[in-house]
Simulated scan of single mutants.
Amino acid sequence: MSVTAPEGFEAAGVAVGLKSSGGPDVAVVVNRGPLKLGAAVFTSNRAKANPIIWSQQVIQDGVVEAIVLNSGGANCFTGSFGFQTTHQTAEKAAELLGISAGDVLICSTGLIGTGDEVFRAKVLDGTEQGIAQLSADGGEAASLAIMTTDSKPKRSVVAREGWSIGGMAKGAGMLAPGLATMLVVITTDAVLEAAEADSALRRATGITFDRLDSDGCMSTNDQVTLLVSGASGIRPEPADFAAALTEVCLDLAQQLQGDAEGASHDITIRVVHAASESDAVEVGRSVARNNLFKAAIFGNDPNWGRVLAAIGTTAAEFDPYDVDVWMNGVRVCSQGAPDASREEVDLTPRATDLLIDLRVGEATATILTNDLTHDYVHENSAYAT
C-alpha cells in the first residue's frame, strides 16, 4: 500500500499517455488530516526544474495538503511555459480538492527540455482523473505512476504500535546526493509538529538518500517529501520516530540502488576508523565515483589499487600507507601493502562489500553505489530516442 498504509491518506495513479511505454504516469497523494503538515528536501543542483522552484515556495509554511507527481517529462528548462504548467497543475488540484494552490506540491520526472501544450493538457487531465479516483487503496497505483526507467516500483512500510510510516520512490539513474535522491513521498499518521517533521526528515535523508551515489550524476528534479496526517492521534518519542523514518528511507534507498540502470553489482562502501564523519563520507564517495574502480567490479576484478588511488585524491586525514582494504570479507590490502591473494575474493555475487579502514579515528560512514556496465552506457546513450 506504500503511502496509503498510514491513516489519513488517499492516493491514485492514472495513465494519460505521458510515457511512450504506457502505464500510469500521473500520481496524486492527498492528506486528509487532521494535521496537514509537510516537510521536504530538494536537489542542491543550481539547475532546478519548475516543480522544484514551485515546491520550494509551497513548503516554507510547513502546510501541505496534496502532492501531484508526473512521469514522462521533467518540465525542466521549459521556460515560463513550464512554470505556468506547474502553477496550473497546482491550481487544478486545489480547485478540485477545495484547498489552496499554495498547499499543493508538484513533482515531475522524465526527459529534460521537453514540454508543450499537449504535455500540459495531459498533466492537467491526469490531475483531474487522479483526484476522481482517490482511495485509501491507491498507494500501489501511485507508486507505479512515478516510474520512468525503473524496472519495478519501490515501496516501504514500517508499522509501530498505533502509528506507521509508508513511502514510495522512483529512481534508476542520475542517482547522486544533493539533499535528496530522485522522487520520494513518505507519509505518516504520527502526531508531529512541522519543525519536528522537517528536522527528522533532514536527519534521515542525510544518512540514507544522501549516501546513495550510484553514478555521480545529480538530477534537476530530486525531491523527498514527508507528509504528516496525525490521524493515529499518537505522538511517538522523537527518537522512535526518527529511527522508523530512517528505516523507511534506508529501505527505499537500497531499493533504488538495486534497480540502478544496467548495474550488475550493488556495492556497499563502508569506511571505518576515520578522523571525522565528513572524512569518512568523502573517502567513500571518492571510490563510489571512480569509474576505474566501478569498471573493475563489473569485471569481477578485486583491483584494490584503484581504491587507494581514489581515496588518495581526497583531503581526508589518513596515511595512504597505513590503510586496510577488505573486499567481500577478504583483506586484500594491509597497511598499504598486499595481503591476501586476489584469487581469494569472489566478486560474482551481486552484493559487493568494500571495507576501508583508515586507522586514524572512530568515525564511520556507508556509501551505496553500483558498478559501471555496458548496459548502463547503452541505456543512457539512447535515453532521449
Rank of each mutant, 00 (worst) to 15 (best):
L183I: 05
A204D: 03
V158M: 09
T188D: 00
L201R: 04
G126V: 09
Q129D: 13
A195I: 06
C217P: 10
A169M: 06
A142D: 07
S199V: 06
P177M: 05
G166R: 00
R155N: 15
D215W: 03
A176V: 01
T127H: 04
I165Q: 07
K152N: 13
S143M: 02
S219W: 03
G178C: 10
A142C: 12
L134W: 07
L144F: 14
R211E: 07
I186A: 00
L192T: 08
V185I: 13
I165S: 01
C217G: 11
T181E: 05
T149E: 08
I146M: 08
P177V: 09
R203D: 15
D222G: 01
T187F: 04
E193S: 14
T187M: 04
L179N: 14
G138R: 07
T208G: 06
M174R: 06
G173F: 01
Q129A: 12
G167E: 01
Q223A: 15
I165W: 06
A204H: 08
G139M: 01
P153Q: 07
C217M: 14
D125L: 15
G178S: 15
A176I: 03
G162N: 04
A180C: 09
A159R: 14
D213S: 06
E128K: 14
G167I: 04
E193Q: 14
A194R: 12
A159G: 10
N221I: 04
S135H: 13
G178P: 07
R160S: 13
D198L: 09
L179H: 13
A190H: 01
G206I: 09
T188K: 03
L134F: 11
G162S: 08
G216C: 03
P177E: 03
A180T: 03
T148E: 12
M147S: 05
E161K: 12
Q223S: 13
D137P: 09
S151G: 14
D137C: 15
S219M: 05
G130H: 06
R211F: 06
M147T: 08
D125M: 11
M147Y: 05
R203W: 12
A142G: 12
R155D: 10
S143N: 09
I146Q: 00
L175M: 13
K154F: 02
I186D: 03
S199P: 06
K154Y: 00
M218R: 14
L134V: 08
A197Q: 07
R155P: 05
K154R: 08
L179S: 13
L212Y: 00
I131L: 10
A195P: 09
S199W: 11
Q223C: 15
F209E: 03
I146S: 02
S214G: 15
L183S: 04
D189C: 03
L144W: 13
R202P: 08
T149R: 02
D137Q: 15
E161F: 11
E128R: 15
E161C: 12
V191M: 01
T208A: 14
D215S: 09
V184I: 13
L179F: 13
S199N: 11
D210T: 03
A197W: 08
